[in-house]
């Protein structure tokens, strides 16, 4: 019988090789596949990775761990402001960075996963992002052609999943995870709670298991908070 369940992150990342393109879900540190990233950081011989991820982690957590090991050759992101090592490698030319508008990045993943190789979007028209891209006018408005993205591996983090690979995300930890799950040749899902088929309500599943090839339950999630903002209980 087909089995998508793997024991842990080390097993899940089997087959990821130097030079491959990875998609990694998350927004800031929220909803990042922290177990698989840590497992990749423990395999420093895997290098020259192209990582498609909205952000690049912080110095000692998330993708920052791979940056510190010089495992990443290129980042495709929309915002990379929270990481000193990233800045150092970018300015020294060690790290290539392709900045992509956030909505365009999300749509590139969604479309790539949906079998649509390119699309016209108004985002970035008239800016340096549009340089070299085809422009078309529809109903008096200008649009630029953006090419979709796929990856060798997509690595996502969900709240709950079942052994069929069906996924449910929690709150804003959903972010890029569902669209990246669609766009991996191999998609790995790490989840906080892995359950048997039938335990998740089919009405409430966000990502159908057809997109997921490997799944495992991670233990002791750190879920670090980047900006802890609170109000007093009275106010």
């Amino acid at each position: 019988m087909a089995n998508k369940v793997v024991a842990n992150a080390e097993e899940a990342i089997e087959g990821i090789k130097s030079g491959m393109t990875l998609m990694l879900g998350g927004f800031g540190l929220c909803g990042i596949p922290e177990k698989c990233i840590a497992a990749l950081a423990a395999r420093p011989e895997i290098k020259d990775l192209t990582c498609i991820s909205n952000n690049a982690g912080v110095d000692d957590f998330g993708l920052g761990l791979l940056l510190k090991n010089h495992q990443i050759k290129k980042m495709v992101s929309s915002y990379v402001g929270e990481n000193d090592e990233f800045e150092r490698q970018m300015l020294s030319g060690e790290l290539e960075v392709e900045l992509t508008p956030q909505g365009t990045l999300a749509e590139k993943c969604r479309a790539g996963g949906a079998g649509i190789p390119a699309f016209f979007t108004p985002t970035g028209y008239g800016t340096e992002i549009a340089e070299g891209k085809e422009v078309r006018e529809y109903n008096g408005k200008k649009y630029i052609l953006e090419e979709s993205l796929t990856s060798d591996f997509a690595i996502v983090k969900a709240w709950k999943g079942d052994t069929k690979g069906n996924l449910i995300f929690k709150a804003t930890a959903r972010n890029f995870n569902p669209v990246m799950a669609m766009a991996g040749k191999v998609t790995i899902a790490e989840v906080e709670h892995l359950v048997e088929p039938g335990e998740l309500d089919p009405n409430e599943i966000h990502t159908p298991g057809i997109y997921v090839n490997r799944i495992f339950e991670g233990k002791n999630y750190e879920k670090r908070i980047e900006q802890r903002t609170v109000r007093s209980a009275e106010g």
Binding site: A106, C109, T172, R174
Partner: peptide, 25 residues
């Protein structure tokens, strides 16, 4: 405080009744 619930500035936040979550696309 919930690490899974942040705004676009990466600050921890709350939701109001009738709120909804969705993916980036």
């Amino acid at each position: 405080v919930d690490a899974d619930l942040i705004n676009a500035g990466k600050q921890t936040i709350t939701t109001r009744p009738g709120s909804v979550f969705f993916h980036s696309a």
